[in-house]
């Protein structure tokens, strides 16, 4: 399938500003940062979690622990997708019981990924609280899930695809909206 780029939602500089704001909101809402773990949802949530931790370190000189969650084994569509998706590692730092977990993902859409992430987290322990941080909320929720920290809210059509591009996976850093041709 061919995609055409409709518009650019964020440049690298925009992303940097947005992440800085989200980081300060996280600091504001969580007085005890030593109890917070930023957990990125694979793939693109992981570098975003690292960046939020970096921003918090620069702002407050506090190191926030990070982790990575691969939700493949908890997906609700495994028996309908064609090929088995590749399973990657979940890496959580130690025991998560009584911690404040901030899930980080690039785009919030149907909410099904977050549902899977919540189920997986609970298999690892009983966090005190779970919050959600996303770079873009594009609407179209299919489950009652909302984010606590949002970079940008973008009303979209269902055909559109929000692509968050990060140097860890892509050649550039930006957020664009594309549509199948």
């Amino acid at each position: 399938m061919h995609f055409i780029e409709k518009f650019r939602l964020m440049t690298a500089a925009d992303m940097n500003r947005v992440l800085l704001r989200m980081a300060s909101q996280i600091v504001e809402n969580n007085p005890d940062l030593s109890n917070v773990i930023l957990v990125g949802i694979r793939r693109r949530g992981v570098p975003l979690a690292t960046r939020l931790a970096q921003k918090i370190l620069e702002m407050d000189q506090v190191t926030v622990t990070t982790g990575a969650l691969d939700i493949t084994l908890y997906r609700d569509d495994l028996s309908t997708v064609g090929d088995r998706p590749v399973v990657n590692r979940t890496e959580l730092p130690g025991n998560i019981t009584d911690k404040t977990i901030i899930l980080v993902d690039d785009v919030l859409y149907t909410g099904r990924t977050v549902r899977a992430a919540l189920d997986e987290l609970i298999d690892f322990g009983r966090p005190h609280r779970v919050q959600l941080a996303v770079l873009v909320d594009r609407g179209w929720r299919e489950l009652p899930i909302q984010a606590d920290y949002v970079g940008k809210i973008l009303p979209t059509s269902e055909r559109e695809i929000v692509k968050v591009m990060l140097p860890e996976f892509d050649e550039t850093e930006q957020v664009i909206v594309v549509e199948p041709q």
Binding site: D70, L73, Y74, V87, N88, R89, E120, D123, F124
Partner: peptide, 26 residues
């Protein structure tokens, strides 16, 4: 290689406290 890589991830599950994932429910 694919089978071995996938198995690598499943090794982790066998070290967790709850050694169960819902993947093949039903």
């Amino acid at each position: 290689e694919l089978i071995l890589e996938t198995a690598e991830t499943f090794r982790d599950i066998n070290t967790r406290q709850i050694k169960k994932v819902p993947t093949l429910r039903g």
